[in-house]
């Protein structure tokens, strides 16, 4: 490729990155700007972060989000890892059915998943609430955990386990001393992903949140709809940075972009 066209290619990618990041960067800058109406010139001020620290509704919602995301991570990672192991080790009737059950939350619009859950939970007495939000988040996270851990298991193969068995290790010894350590990076990557899915999830939580309590994205949405305050910029900046840090961690553990 000649010089001119490679410069052009670089410029094109730069424009794409500009398009992807400009709104986020503007929002971050405005969260530090004193003017409430985003007026320039820019005057550095932490006033919106100070107001945020006193906004009990947003703080409470943030706490709910973090707790749900943590519990979701533990449950989804555990169940998903067991399922991935089962898929990798056994052929059984019903395997295809279970695989089929993992597909809908991956492929249907969340609007449909969320409203279907709302109707069934309401009708069956499970009801709305943080517990039903958790039920929904785990359902959304499970397929990703199965895919991520399953990919790791496939790339490992069975030769190590066979070697351990040949050397006289029993089933549990093989699992804890060979399989589990080899799977660990995949499990960590899946756990980070599950946390991010839950922490960022809006649609499902929106339909399942009861009146009064909610998660952070639901609270932000209602603040935006009511006519918003710049505190939302501050909390959004924190959320974006937090998800990006999580995802860089995920990329490290999952060897994002393929083996090199």
């Amino acid at each position: 490729m000649n010089k001119a066209s490679s410069a052009l290619s670089g410029l094109y990618l730069l424009l794409i990155l500009f398009f992807l990041y400009i709104p986020i960067i503007v929002m971050m800058i405005m969260s530090f700007n004193r003017s409430e109406l985003y007026l320039l010139p820019f005057e550095f001020d932490l006033v919106w972060y100070q107001q945020l620290a006193q906004n009990d509704q947003l703080i409470g919602a943030a706490r709910n989000s973090i707790v749900i995301a943590l519990v979701n991570t533990v449950i989804a990672t555990t169940l998903g890892t067991l399922t991935a192991l089962c898929f990798a080790r056994y052929e059984f009737r019903g395997k295809r059915v279970l695989q089929g059950m993992l597909v809908p939350t991956l492929t249907m619009p969340w609007l449909i998943t969320g409203t279907a859950m709302l109707m069934f939970f309401f009708w069956s007495g499970i009801g709305r609430g943080l517990h039903s939000i958790l039920l929904g988040h785990v359902a959304l996270s499970l397929p990703y955990v199965v895919i991520i851990v399953g990919a790791r298991l496939r790339s490992l193969g069975v030769s190590m386990e066979e070697a351990a068995a040949t050397l006289g290790a029993n089933g549990w010894q093989t699992f804890w001393r060979v399989t589990a350590p080899l799977m660990a990076p995949g499990i960590v990557a899946a756990a980070l992903f599950a946390f991010a899915i839950s922490f960022d999830q809006f649609v499902i939580s929106y339909f399942l949140a009861p009146v009064g309590t909610s998660t952070l994205p639901v609270q932000i949405y209602s603040a935006i709809r009511k006519g918003f305050t710049p505190e939302i910029n501050a909390i959004s900046t924190i959320i974006i940075l937090a998800s990006m840090v999580l995802m860089i961690g995920f990329a490290r553990f999952s060897k994002f972009g393929g083996e090199r």
């Binding site: 929002m27 960022d200 809006f202 994205p217 932000i220 959004s236 959320i239 998800s243 995802m247 995920f250």
Partner: peptide, 8 residues
């Protein structure tokens, strides 16, 4: 950005 909060 795809992995960060879509609402925000």
């Amino acid at each position: 950005p795809f992995w960060s909060n879509s609402l925000v």
